Computed example of a mutant assay.
Amino acid sequence: MMADMPYDDMDETQFEEFCFELMREVGFVNLDWRKGTGLVASPSDSGRDIVAQLPREELDGRQYLETWFVDCKHYQRGVPPDKIAGLLSWATAERADVALVVASNFLSNPCKDFLKSYEVNNRPPFRVRYWERPNIARLLEGRDEFINRYLRTEMRIEAEVIEAEQELFDRVWYNRKMILEERLAAGDASFSDAVIATMRAACREMEAKYGKENLGPYSDFEWGMVSGKLSALRWVLGDEWDNLDS
């Protein structure tokens, strides 16, 4: 087997979604994922998992759209011939331009022989194509952004990044308010009673949310880590470096 692919640990539905997004990435338009149910394997796709169109242009400049019927097969072993018969039937009935099988690994040799025989004996009005593991690997070359966006499950989703940024913001904010409490205790009278009361109420909310024991005081090293993490997450979310406003 070739090197690991990003979809190896996906289930059938996730692999279909991967195929859908990959086709969009390489230039297909008007995509329709025909899953139709919440089941892992959908009985409602009518012999094709995806219907998509590929923009084409002839030498004279005429532009048109090719209609592709796509059947996605997430198999550990070779795809057998009987598993693609539905795709060919529907491509014939609905006059597709191309019938495409996307296999997470390979078509079996009997399946390839069946396709050759089908084309010779039936002369279908559509072209038959199949993408196997090496074809998909070539399509993914140079598409690191796509892989990061859709396939690398170890990557943090944006909601997790935002949640972590909020917690670090709260920790920085709370620590600065503890410094302000020290100033008040030393006699600083530059803040109104209303401002002090609002600040203390917000601090109590932070303590209830995170636990007072988890909000410092910090050593110089710990404070540097908290500040650095906040700056890094804000940069990931689109802010400038070193923004530690709270």
Rank of each mutant, 00 (worst) to 15 (best):
D60M: 09
D60K: 12
D60P: 03
G61W: 05
G61F: 04
R62I: 07
Q63Y: 10
Q63F: 09
Q63C: 10
Y64V: 09
Y64A: 06
L65I: 06
E66D: 09
T67H: 00
F69Y: 12
F69G: 04
F69K: 04
V70P: 07
C72W: 09
C72F: 12
C72T: 10
C72H: 08
K73Q: 07
K73G: 11
Y75P: 08
Y75W: 13
K83D: 12
A85F: 08
A85T: 14
G86F: 02
L87W: 08
S89Y: 04
A91V: 02
T92W: 03
R95Y: 12
D97T: 03
D97M: 03
D97F: 10
V98Q: 06
V98G: 06
V101Q: 10
V101P: 07
V102A: 06
V102T: 05
N105T: 15
F106K: 15
L107K: 14
L107I: 12
S108Y: 09
C111Y: 11
F114S: 00
S117F: 00
Y118N: 00
V120D: 03
N122R: 08
N122H: 12
P124L: 01
F126D: 00
R129E: 06
W131F: 14
W131Y: 13
E132S: 13
R133L: 05
R133T: 02
P134S: 06
P134E: 04
N135I: 04
I136A: 04
A137E: 12
A137K: 15
A137C: 13
L139M: 14
E141M: 11
G142R: 12
G142L: 06
G142E: 01
D144Q: 15
D144T: 15
F146P: 03
I147H: 08
I147F: 08
I147K: 15
I147L: 14
L151S: 09
E154N: 03
E154F: 02
M155A: 05
R156F: 01
I157M: 06
E160H: 13
I162Q: 14
E165L: 05
E165D: 08
L168W: 04
V172K: 13
N175G: 06
R176Y: 14
M178E: 09
M178K: 15
